[in-house]
Write a protein that binds this DNA or RNA. Sequence first.
DNA 1: GCCAATGCGTCAACATTACTGCCATAATCG
DNA 2: CGATTATGGCAGTAATGTTGACGCATTGGC
Lengths: 164, 164
Amino acid sequence: MNDPRPVANPLFLREEELRQGIELLFFAYRDFTAEPDKILAELGLGRAHHRVIYFVGRNPGMPVSALLDILKITKQSLSRVLGTLIRAGFIQQKAGTRDARQRLLELTPKGAALERRLTEGQRRRVAAAYRGAGADAVDGFRKVLTGLIDESERLKALAGGSRG
Amino acid sequence: MNDPRPVANPLFLREEELRQGIELLFFAYRDFTAEPDKILAELGLGRAHHRVIYFVGRNPGMPVSALLDILKITKQSLSRVLGTLIRAGFIQQKAGTRDARQRLLELTPKGAALERRLTEGQRRRVAAAYRGAGADAVDGFRKVLTGLIDESERLKALAGGSRG
DNA sequence: GCCAATGCGTCAACATTACTGCCATAATCG
DNA sequence: CGATTATGGCAGTAATGTTGACGCATTGGC
């Protein structure tokens, strides 16, 4: 009458499947950030500096407000990190032409060099994972990650540099 | 002789493709952690507490050393977080039977309840992203994320609970 | 039984990254 | 002119991480 095997319980499988996804995200992010963190530590900088350098490099001339919207931190937190990077000569500000209140941000050559150095390892890592998984897998990876982003943020996230 | 169209430069596309992957990872992780962070803040806890509660819930009876190996933080950092959780009654310790030096960790009922509350939103989010992307995409998602993990950590990461 | 190594905890000091709240300046807009 | 916007600065606080040193109980090899 009863099947002696513990037949695959769909609820259990689902739970297990979801937890595996959660864990993969944790482990991947952990290892993904470890490399640049090391380089940053040598320079007395932290992960927050990398994020700022990355996105300013990606969106040259962006105002502070746009950076705040991406990072989702307070302006006070950003202000300190940004101030450090400006004083250290990685980022420079220019007054906005349309709105003179704005401080438009861009990397200096020194900043661009650091950006390349920091992101190089991450690019290599992503490239290796893409190569190993194949084009279809990459497509799925992007689909799922996009679905994980808050709906209201998806367009902004995919806009990336000056693509959108 | 020359193709007048700026033919898709494979190097550019690759760079763009990789950067998009990097950004998706950032945005997904940002939004993925925002929800539990709010709940934790109400309790005077932080993301580190969630990680500990999560993995102890996943691996009941795990020793401290295993947790250190997963989280990749120093025992001093863990000790503080773990101490808080134990004093607050979310986690309890039992001496190891095989090795009496070990402190085997497990969630109390109170801890298990908090774990469910914290992870519920994340599970829902992952479930929604999985549903929206489809089974093939989920497979690709897992493949790529696995490839992003340090090779030496992949087996451990996939071992999850007591699956491996 | 001695002794080194292991597993865990703790104290001290410090850095980074985040937060809230408040105030200031300057420019834009209505 | 007055309200809003974009930005900067200061003060205080907290979470999370680090290194270094030490203690204590237990284990395991000799």
